[in-house]
Every structure is written in structure tokens, then in C-alpha cells.
Amino acid sequence: MAIIEAADLRKVFRRIVRRPGIGGAVRALFSREYEDKIAVDGVNFTLAEGELVGYLGPNGAGKSTTIKILTGILVPTSGSVRVAGIVPYQRRQENAENIGVVFGQRSQLYWDLPLRESFELLRAIYDVPRNRYLENLAHFSAILDLERFLDTPVRQLSLGERMRGDFAAAMLHDPKIVYLDEPTIGLDVVAKEAIREFITRVNRERGTTVILTTHDLADVERLTPRVILIDEGRVIFDGALQRLRTEYGTHRTLVVTFAEAPTNIDVPGTEIESREGLVVRLRFDRRKLSAEAIIRRVMERYPISDVSIIEPDIDTIVRRIYVEGYQHGAVGAPS
């Protein structure tokens, strides 16, 4: 059953154009010029209950705008959206009861008060039954190791501790859906791992639907079987991470260490990615050439001392899509 449906979602922001200098400021007093910025441009997707989806895109792609529309704090310019059967911006408060949100860059906890006080306040806001609240608190404390700093004022917590507190805070009322906006930003490896473990368990054990936006592709590899890629306000890919890898991870890299500096490198079917002294990285399409064939070609032409092959990682794949744009069936594929 679809828990989130977004169809032809568009959001256009109208901004005042500011001209530079005093002259511009004076002119702005009398006549204002506006420019339209299209943040989200016809986004479509559907999420089934219990899915864990990575929502990815470069800065300014429209990720946050989409999330804001889904949470009900932004009204779309056109298009329709339903979250658990509710149009979020029409019934913001009701929608709020169904969702939990974590912003990596913005805490929802009370700065001056111990973590426990923020939790108590959230219990009152969401009207969580006392038993359920204590059960959840005990459960989250165990997974996230909160016990040590439950009574410490939030201002004295480290970023990792604060984030763990924020995660527990977002989940105390058993939301059906959680939106995680760059939740691992700035965290050390240990904290990241704790958070990832928490997300996995919440999704698996409670069936919570999770939308995760991140720039850390390790999060995606660890957590989300499905990814939605967005760029310039449009969905450019929606599917299994595995499919993205096969469609886009078409190029492998052969790292060759030459025995002596070659004057010019020319291996048919490859292009030079980089060259540092004797180490040269050659990129090739694995559908056209096997690694064995490439190595043979290199060895026929040059004396070499070492070779290794690098498989494309998700980072490279996504970077390539951001730079080159997505075309169905992958760039460089024989048409």
C-alpha cells in the first residue's frame, strides 16, 4: 500500500531581485523586480509502507523543498501529494502526528534543558501513553546508548550525542514515517555506525517508512535498497541501487604501474583518467572489453611492474550522473 504519493509536484519560489549598490537599493524601494526559481519541477514518486529510500541529489536539487512539502510546512505550487492519506499542507497538525523528522544541521531538542526534559515535553505534545513512552525510551536508550547523558543539558552534549538524542526524540511517538535530512553530517565513524544501526532496526522492527537524504553514499550503500536521484528539481533515477550500479557502473579503472616512463600511452579502448609518475589510471567500458583483454593489450605495448582493477563505487557513479546527467540506459551505452 502506498504511504506517500507525490504526483507532478512543482514548487516555484518568487524572489525579489536585488540590484547591487545604493542605487539598486533605492530603486528597489519604488519598483521591485521578481524572478521565479523553480525548486521542484514535476516530481513523481510513490513509497510503499515500510520502505527505506535514499533521496539523493546535489545541493540545490530540490531535496529539502520536497521534504518540506511532505511534512506540510510548504505548500506546493501545483501537483498533488498525500502522506498516509492526508494532504500535508491542508492538515498540517494531523500530518505532524504521523511523522518524525531529524535534521542533521538543526536540533529539535531544548538547548538549556537535560535531554530527558525534551523527551518529556515531546511525550506531552504527541500524547504518548506513559507506558509506551517508557518502553520506547528504554528501547532507544539501549540501542543509542543514551543512558550516560540523559540528564545532561543538551548544550553540553557532543554532536554525536546530540544527534542520537535527536533520533530518539523523532521516534518517541511511533511515527509511521520518518524524514531524515542529512542525519550523519559531521559525525565520527562510531556515531555514524550507531545511527545507521538505529535506522535499520527501526525500519525492520517497527515497519517505519524512512526517507533519507544524504551526501554520504556510505549511508546509501548500508541502508537503502532503493534510491531516488533528483537534479534540478526533477527525478532522474528511481530504482534499485543495484540497477544504478549496473547501468552506470559501466566503467572500471585499470591502475597500471609502468616499469619505465612511457613516452606516450595509447591503449585502444581506454582513456587516461590520471597520470602520476609511473602510475597511470586507465578507464574502460567493461561491456566492451574484459579486464584480461585490456591487461594483455597494455602488456603487449609496455613493460609494466604492477596492475590492479578498481570497481566503480557508488560515489563515482553518482558524481558521474550529477556531472553528465542521467540518460536512460546509461551514458556511453551503445544505442
Binding site: D8, P76, S78, G79, S80, I86, V87, Q90, R91, Q93, E94, E97, Y110, L113, E117, E120, L121, A124, I125, D127
Partner: peptide
């Protein structure tokens, strides 16, 4: 805006959160 406008059902008003806000302040 497409889609029929839904009736605005207000959630049941509870005083408790606001008492808690005051207490927290």
C-alpha cells in the same frame, strides 16, 4: 492546485502540551 480540498478537521485540542511548554520555560 489539483485535487479536491479536504475538510479541515481540527485535531482534538489538548491543553497539556501548552502547560508543559510553560513548565519547560
Amino acid at each position: 492546485m489539483t485535487g479536491a480540498v479536504e475538510p479541515r478537521r481540527r485535531p482534538r485540542f489538548r491543553l497539556e502540551p501548552y502547560v508543559e511548554f510553560a513548565r519547560t520555560a
